[in-house]
């Protein structure tokens, strides 16, 4: 890097460095507060044991599993839906419908998650209670579809964006050869756009892991390990949100910083993966 030339450049540099430092500061705060737990209990112990504060066990294994299950399940629901929807938007629908669908998807990105979960709490939860026939109706199965609805717009916008980047010469060639829209999509656009599809899925998975309100309000928050999807569970993010009631010096409170640290590291790895797949894409072309 060349040395800054002027006073104003120093100002801009300072702003960038400050923002970078803030990213590091978040990590450091999490690390410092979770150090006591990382030092005296082994990390694997913490990750693999269950949560029983009365027995002195502060393992976050059930929450970790709940988070992963919820995110995977919502991805399984949302991925085909989003892919289908992005097909409709980028190839199948007439121009007017295309614009309408795209603006609806954009609007969906702006709906607050707390509103989604509030509506689902009074619509989906009673419905699930009737179907399951036991419990409160709050379970992994209740939260996953709502989470799927939350991450769908992220993925759709990404998919549509990567379909749009397919070179015009390729799509025009299909038209010239007499291919119909679905053949164009299937044999030309998807093979060209798959790195974008992978990026969209990664981002959607990250959003699903990181969302707090939906799992907090709809998944039931039980701390015990779950055996089936129709049981109540507590995700890492909900665990962080719920521990506020404890005293600041307690081990319970310190354990939520381990959850935070875990989520932070997960995000960092995800972003590295995204970066690598983007590099693959640009290296290939």
């Amino acid at each position: 890097m060349d040395r800054p030339h002027s006073f104003t450049e120093y100002i801009f540099l300072t702003a960038a460095v400050c923002s970078g430092l803030l990213t590091a500061a978040v990590f450091l705060f999490l690390l410092i507060f979770s150090l006591p737990l990382l030092q005296n209990g082994e990390l694997t112990d913490l990750l693999l044991s269950s949560w029983a504060p009365d027995k002195g066990m502060y393992g976050i294994y059930p929450m970790l599993m709940a988070s992963l299950t919820l995110a995977c399940l919502s991805l399984v629901i949302s991925f085909p839906l989003s892919l289908g929807c992005s097909f409709v938007i980028s190839a199948l629908a007439p121009a007017r419908l295309r614009r309408f669908l795209l603006s609806m998807v954009r609007l969906m990105t702006g709906i607050p998650t707390v509103v989604y979960s509030f509506a689902a709490l009074f619509l989906l939860v009673p419905f699930m209670r009737n179907i399951l026939g036991h419990g409160s109706g709050m379970s992994i199965l209740t939260a996953a579809p709502v989470l799927a609805l939350l991450i769908a717009p992220t993925m759709i916008i990404f998919f549509v964006g990567s379909f749009e980047k397919v070179p015009l010469s390729a799509t025009l060639a299909v038209d010239a050869l007499g291919g119909n829209p679905i053949q164009k999509l299937l044999y030309v656009m998807i093979p060209q756009a798959w790195p974008g599809i992978i990026n969209g899925v990664l981002l959607g998975f990250g959003r699903a892991m990181g969302d707090t309100m939906i799992s907090l309000m709809l998944a039931g928050n039980s701390v015990s390990a779950f055996n089936s999807l129709s049981q109540s569970a507590r995700s890492l993010t909900a665990h962080i949100a719920l521990v506020m009631a404890f005293d600041f010096d307690s081990m319970e409170f310190k354990s939520i910083f381990v959850c935070g640290l875990l989520l932070y590291i997960f995000t960092a790895i995800l972003m590295l993966l995204l970066r690598m797949s983007t590099l693959c894409l640009s290296g290939k072309r």
Binding site: S19, V26, M209, G210, D211, A241, T267
Partner: peptide, 13 residues
């Protein structure tokens, strides 16, 4: 990369 990580960090963190 730093800003991407910060953008991806869940809001609860």
């Amino acid at each position: 990369l730093l800003f991407d990580i910060l953008a991806g960090v869940p809001s609860i963190i």
